[in-house]
C-alpha cells in the first residue's frame, strides 16, 4: 500500500516536472500552427484560436530553411567524422603509450577548449582569409574540428585509458604495430564512446552560431542556426513563422537525440566515470 502510494507520488511529481520541462517547447509547437491574426489579436500567451501549416511553408521556402538545413548537414557530418577520427588517434596514443609530455599535451589540448571562443573570433576570421578558406563551408568545418578536438580527445582519453590492457599486450606480443592495435583492438572497444561523442558533437556543431557568422558571409552558405536568426530578422513580429522555423531547426538534433538516446544517456559521461 505504502509502496503504491510512493510510486504514485513519484509518477505525479515526475510528470509535473516533465511537463515543466516540455511545456515551453509544446507551447512553441502550438504557436507555430497559429495564424498571424490570431497572435495579433490574442497575444503570444494565449491558447490557439486557429490552425494553419502555412507557417511551415513560409519558413521552409521564403525563409530559406531548406537550403540552410542542407548547409548544416554539409558542415556537421564531415566535421563530426573528422573530429572523432583525429581525437581518437590522439587519445589512443596519449592513453595507451608513454608519449613524453603526454600530460602536458592533453592539458594543453583541453585548455584550448577552455578558451572563451570570443577571443578567437577575430584571429580566426583573419586566418581563414589568409588561407583563402574564408566564406567556404570548409573553413567552418576546419574551425569546428579544431575547436572541438581538445574536449573530444580528453573524453576519449579517459575512456581508452580504462580499457583493459591484456588484449593490447597480446597483440603487441604478436607483433602488431600501433596502427593495427588502434584499428583492430582499441577502436572496436571504443565504439560506445564514439557513438556518444558523435551524437553530442552533432548537436553542438549543428547548433553553432558564433563560428558560422565568423567565417561565412554569404547568406546561401549559412547553416540553420544563423539562418534562423535571419528568419527572426525577417519575420520579427510574425511569431508563428519564427516558431515554425524554430521547430524545423530543432527537429534534426531532436531526431539524433531520440535515435541515439541510449548513447547520450549511458555514454555521455564517459569523461565523468574515470
Amino acid at each position: 500500500m505504502i509502496r503504491a502510494l510512493r510510486t504514485g507520488a513519484f509518477h505525479t511529481g515526475m510528470s509535473l516536472l516533465a511537463l515543466l520541462w516540455l511545456g515551453p517547447i509544446l507551447w512553441v509547437v502550438a504557436m507555430s500552427t497559429r495564424t498571424f491574426d490570431d497572435i495579433a489579436a490574442h497575444g503570444v500567451g494565449s491558447l490557439p484560436h486557429s490552425f494553419t501549416l502555412d507557417t511551415y511553408r513560409q519558413a521552409w521556402t521564403d525563409g530559406g530553411e531548406l537550403r540552410a538545413l542542407i548547409n548544416s548537414l554539409l558542415v556537421t557530418v564531415p566535421a563530426v567524422a573528422l573530429s572523432l577520427v583525429l581525437a581518437a588517434l590522439a587519445a589512443f596514443a596519449l592513453s595507451r603509450y608513454r608519449i613524453p609530455g603526454r600530460r602536458v599535451i592533453l592539458l594543453l589540448m583541453l585548455a584550448g577548449n577552455l578558451l572563451p571562443p570570443q577571443i578567437l573570433l577575430i584571429p580566426v576570421s583573419k586566418f581563414s582569409e589568409l588561407t583563402g578558406l574564408y566564406d567556404t563551408l570548409a573553413a567552418l568545418i576546419a574551425v569546428q574540428v579544431g575547436f572541438g578536438l581538445g574536449f573530444y580527445t580528453f573524453v576519449l582519453h579517459g575512456f581508452m585509458r580504462d580499457l583493459p590492457g591484456e588484449l593490447q599486450e597480446a597483440a603487441t606480443v604478436d607483433g602488431a604495430g600501433p596502427g593495427q592495435i588502434f584499428a583492430r583492438v582499441i577502436l572496436p572497444l571504443t565504439r560506445p564512446a564514439l557513438a556518444a561523442l558523435g551524437a553530442l558533437s552533432f548537436t553542438w556543431i549543428f547548433n553553432d552560431l558564433l563560428w558560422a557568422i565568423t567565417v561565412l558571409r554569404t547568406d546561401d552558405k549559412m547553416p540553420v542556426t544563423p539562418a534562423l536568426l535571419g528568419l527572426q530578422g525577417q519575420f520579427v513580429s510574425s511569431w508563428n513563422v519564427i516558431a515554425a522555423g524554430t521547430v524545423i531547426a530543432a527537429v534534426p538534433t531532436l531526431l539524433v537525440f531520440l535515435r541515439f538516446q541510449r548513447h547520450f544517456v549511458s555514454g555521455l559521461a564517459l569523461g565523468a566515470v574515470k
Binding site: 583525429l86 596514443a93 599535451i105 589540448m109 577548449n113 574540428v145 575547436f147 578536438l149
Partner: peptide
C-alpha cells in the same frame, strides 16, 4: 597520431 590533431588545434585555436 598526436601531432596531427595537435597541429590542427594549434592552427585554429592556439595560434589565434
Amino acid at each position: 597520431f598526436v601531432l596531427v590533431p595537435f597541429a590542427v588545434e594549434s592552427i585554429w585555436v592556439f595560434w589565434p
